[in-house]
Design a protein around this nucleic acid. Sequence first.
DNA 1: CAAAAAAGGTTTGAGCTTGAAATAAATCGA
DNA 2: TCGATTTATTTCAAGCTCAAACCTTTTTTG
Lengths: 166, 166
Amino acid sequence: MMDPHVDLTETPEAAPRGDASQGDAKEHLRLWLRLLKTSRRIEAVLRDRLRTEFDTTLPRFDVLAALARFEDGLKMSALSDVLRVSNGNVTGIVDRLVEDGLVTRIRVPGDRRASLVRLTGKGSTEFARQAAAHESWIGEMLGALSPEDAAHLSVQLDAISPSEAP
Amino acid sequence: MMDPHVDLTETPEAAPRGDASQGDAKEHLRLWLRLLKTSRRIEAVLRDRLRTEFDTTLPRFDVLAALARFEDGLKMSALSDVLRVSNGNVTGIVDRLVEDGLVTRIRVPGDRRASLVRLTGKGSTEFARQAAAHESWIGEMLGALSPEDAAHLSVQLDAISPSEAP
DNA sequence: CAAAAAAGGTTTGAGCTTGAAATAAATCGA
DNA sequence: TCGATTTATTTCAAGCTCAAACCTTTTTTG
């Protein structure tokens, strides 16, 4: 999981007066550490539940989720693009999902290089179960937040990582 | 990297009226996806810079950071505790850091099972360089946020994942 | 058309990650 | 004291992850 990077969260050490950028840097660093901690913690819970309740992993779930969004299937490259994962990475995960019959590779007529990856019926059913559970887990974990707060937070986070493609 | 899990960010689909909890769930899910996306994006940048500029990895950096905070060294178990990583995980990373001379294992006098892990002089120097760069990278990435916004965000995130030990 | 470039994927090597099993040492309880 | 438990750590198998190298096939271009 690897949480903290630098964690000086615990050392407030009075306001580091002097020039302003010093203090700003610390505040930004602190925010980053909280952000990381929060997402890691949630992720850990999701991994754990996916494993114990569905005997699967987060990457597998992510692939199914992506394919569920694109009913016509996705090319490997498009898939790794959507997931923001390296090309080679997806190959292995899809291989295993194919073994388990949750996903198929379909030849693309005009192009002998490419193939489309699609959910099978089984994959579709299985994902529906998992997605429902997933949503409720998130609800449990973020339940402390009002929908308004949640919406507000979303907006602020968007300010940090805008939707520009890297 | 595995970003999106479920990403229905792209399907606003009008406000799902009906009972309230429905919409709330979506809002929470949306927040989670943003949170994940943001932290993954920042993490990806950090990994990349650590690799290209220091030929190291985030987990290694994290271990050094933890050890830098505890000058007297940490036992393996304490280290994996601080980092919130499995025990066996740390073993390998520390092994490699020892090979590179950045870290040492010190026998604990009264206990032949345990050992303390500490930064070497070299490790300490190296970490200082990396930490400075790290802080400035964070500054770059979060620079769009005023320190006030950052502080505010920190507080809200803390509401999601409070400091209770799991 | 033939050579070069680009596009789609897989393989590979190294490292990270986990949970579970294995070792070994220390401590506790009867 | 001796067996049982707990504590500290490592080993293991399986899977995820990346970047780089490597094939093909397709497209571009001279």
